[in-house]
């Protein structure tokens, strides 16, 4: 446990100094406050920006941060030093994952406050966001483990992140995209968030999210077996 805490606190110390990571955590929470207060369009659904930006945040921040942090540690060989100091790969990944989750939880709190969620709706929103953060973290970890340096990680992260972040928004304008996007967890998260207080949780959403989770775990296992953390 002390190793997990050490990794977590190390990341926490780095937060304000690592602009790549900081901007990911802060961008959408700041944007949602600005847009919800500054942009008022006719017929715009209530808390429209809170809902759309929450999904984009979940598709982007945890994924990008996990891959960037792991790839940087591999590139600079600090990960090897940690391993030589008896930090187990699982402890490292849990430490970084917990850090990213906690930082994203602050963002989730902003979206929840701006979105006006209370009571059971708030609990459901937090649950949906948490599931999304974990799935994106796993996807980011796959990229981080697979990549030997930050440049490789960025070149893989950008298209993957764009798919999960922007498909839910683009699917509002195009039915073909919407049909394709239904197999992604971020589209299902979007539908779950949009359905809070309006409709029940659909079986389709649960199945798609579960399948995405299984695929992410399988990909992570494959990447880890092939590349390890070295």
């Amino acid at each position: 446990m002390k190793n997990i805490i050490a990794v977590f606190l190390k990341q926490l110390s780095d937060t304000l100094k690592n602009k790549t990571v900081l901007i990911q955590f802060a961008m959408f929470p700041v944007l949602v406050i600005v847009f919800e207060n500054a942009v008022k369009l006719e017929d715009m659904p209530e808390h429209f920006f809170a809902r759309i930006f929450a999904v984009m945040f979940v598709g982007m921040a945890p994924l990008t941060c996990m891959s960037a942090i792991i790839a940087e540690e591999k590139e600079k060989n600090t990960l090897r030093v940690l391993m030589m100091s008896n930090v187990k790969p699982a402890e490292y990944l849990v430490g970084v994952g917990a850090y990213v989750f906690v930082m994203c939880a602050f963002g989730t709190a902003v979206f929840a406050a701006v979105g006006g969620y209370t009571g059971a709706d708030l609990a459901l929103f937090v649950g949906v966001m948490s599931a999304g953060i974990i799935l994106s973290e796993l996807t980011g970890a796959v990229i981080g483990v697979f990549s030997s340096n930050q440049m490789t990680a960025t070149s893989i992260t950008v298209p993957v992140m764009a798919i999960f972040s922007f498909l839910p928004m683009l699917s509002m304008f195009n039915d073909t995209i919407k049909a394709a996007a239904r197999v992604t967890y971020s589209q299902q998260l979007s539908e779950l968030i949009n359905g809070i207080g309006v409709s029940e949780i659909s079986a389709e959403s649960m199945i798609v999210i579960s399948v995405n989770l299984v695929i992410a775990v399988a990909l992570f296992t494959m990447a880890y077996r092939k590349k390890g953390l070295e």
């Binding site: 050490a6 190390k10 690592n18 600079k76 600090t78 030093v81 930090v87």
Partner: peptide, 23 residues
């Protein structure tokens, strides 16, 4: 030679991480 340091962290913070790991 290739064992890296955490460039953004101070010298103290670099060692603090390992002090925590080693108790």
């Amino acid at each position: 030679d290739n064992f890296g340091l955490y460039d953004r962290l101070s010298c103290y913070e670099n060692l603090l991480t390992f002090a925590r790991i080693h108790g």
